[in-house]
Computed example of a mutant assay.
Amino acid sequence: MPNKNHHVQNGHEIILTGIHMELTEALKNIAHEKLQRLFRHEDRIVRVRVELEYDKTRGHENQFIAKGHVQIYGPDMICSVASEDCLKSLDLLVDKLDRMIRRRARLQKVKRHHPHPVEIPAAIPKV
């Protein structure tokens, strides 16, 4: 059965779930501290859901899987990483989500500052 931790801070909701592993208080605190980095780049994040999973059937180098789901206004961002250590997987996940959020913010900024002309195929009638 999954071990869940639900946390709301500054209007942002963080849901941390452990699958086939027990989430210790130290691990929960480290995860919340690392996830705060995501909110620096984008304030419109509604919810961040992180699943930390231990899968003993996988090879030793990919036993710990971290899955992230960022609910934001617009399309959600979902990614997953695997490594041999739980904290390393969490670090890699936060880095990957941070890159995704920064890329999205940069593309929106470029789109906002460089509008492209729109071609209208029909002639506009003059009044």
Rank of each mutant, 00 (worst) to 15 (best):
P2S: 10
P2T: 10
P2K: 02
N3R: 04
H6D: 15
H7I: 15
H7N: 11
Q9R: 10
N10G: 07
N10F: 09
E13I: 13
E13A: 04
I15T: 12
T17G: 00
T17R: 01
G18T: 04
I19T: 12
H20S: 11
M21L: 15
E22W: 00
L23Q: 04
E25H: 02
A26D: 14
L27R: 04
K28V: 14
K28E: 15
N29W: 01
A31H: 08
A31R: 05
A31K: 05
H32R: 07
H32L: 11
H32Q: 06
E33G: 05
E33A: 12
K34N: 05
K34M: 07
K34Y: 07
L35Y: 07
R37T: 13
R37Q: 12
R37H: 10
L38C: 04
L38Q: 03
F39I: 11
R40V: 12
H41E: 11
I45S: 03
V46T: 11
R47A: 03
V50S: 02
V50Q: 02
E51M: 01
L52F: 14
L52H: 07
E53W: 01
E53N: 07
D55I: 08
K56F: 06
K56D: 14
K56R: 09
T57C: 03
T57K: 10
R58T: 12
H60I: 11
H60Y: 09
E61D: 13
E61A: 11
E61Y: 09
N62D: 11
N62A: 08
N62Y: 10
F64P: 02
I65N: 02
A66C: 09
K67P: 04
H69E: 15
V70A: 02
Q71D: 08
Q71L: 06
Y73W: 09
G74S: 08
G74A: 06
P75N: 11
P75D: 12
S80H: 10
S80R: 09
V81P: 02
A82T: 14
E84H: 13
D85V: 01
K88Q: 11
S89Q: 04
L93V: 09
V94S: 02
D95C: 00
L97C: 04
R99T: 09
M100S: 12
I101C: 03
I101G: 03
I101P: 05
R103M: 06
Q108F: 08
V110Q: 12
K111Q: 14
K111D: 13
R112K: 15
H113Y: 07
P115H: 07
H116T: 14
E119G: 02
P121D: 03
A122Q: 12
A122F: 15
A122H: 15
A122T: 14
P125D: 02
P125Q: 03
K126H: 12
V127D: 09
